[in-house]
């Protein structure tokens, strides 16, 4: 389809507005952080008023929320879930464990830096972050989407070699479908 630049800009603004105000979240409850999701979603903090809502499967989701430490074994599942999601898709890394390994920085079985394996759009610091911090992280993500800067999915496609190399470094037995969309 041919788009002249000015009109595409307006379409982008509208689309980005829709994207930022409706986030379907796939919560990948790996670490301790999963326990902060229920209070974020229910009546005390009510994330639904920002259009944030749980999705049941990766296909329907926009945001992959990685709540805490990731064992190499679950990294495989995370990659698989992430690749099933539809573009544009975003990742929120939740807690110190996803940033630098947190208290598991020297463990033989948990990865240290999540952004070397999959592209992270927003990190939420803390061990563990409270629901306010989670909502602040979502607000930041919404700002990034509105500005068109949350382009993790694009980076993933462009640097697939780099990410695949890092992933295969720790997942020796690679039995996964190709990333083809």
């Amino acid at each position: 389809m041919v788009n002249d630049k000015e009109s595409q800009k307006i379409v982008d603004i509208i689309q980005n507005f829709a994207r930022q105000s409706s986030l379907f979240v796939l919560a990948y409850g790996t670490g301790c952080g999963a326990i902060e999701i229920p209070p974020t979603m229910t009546s005390r903090y009510d994330a639904e008023r920002f259009g944030i809502r749980g999705a049941a499967t990766p296909r329907q989701a926009d945001v992959l929320l990685i709540t805490g430490y990731l064992a190499t074994k679950s990294l495989k599942r995370v990659i698989r879930a992430y690749e099933q999601m539809q573009n544009p898709k975003y990742i929120i890394g939740f807690g110190s464990c996803t940033i630098n390994g947190g208290m598991y920085w020297d463990s033989y079985n948990t990865i240290n830096r999540l952004d070397m394996y999959i592209p992270v759009d927003v990190y939420i610091n803390g061990c563990m972050p409270r629901p306010e911090a989670v909502i602040a992280g979502f607000a930041k993500l919404q700002k990034l989407i509105q500005a068109g800067k949350a382009d993790g999915w694009d980076r993933y496609q462009k640097n697939l070699e780099f990410y695949r190399g890092n992933q295969k470094k720790i997942i020796h037995n690679w039995v996964m479908p190709d990333y083809n969309w």
Partner: peptide, 17 residues
Amino acid sequence: QNRVGPPIYQNFLDVMK
């Protein structure tokens, strides 16, 4: 459920998204 809830046009945004 004692929440504020999404705006009532939220479903339009969902479909647009």
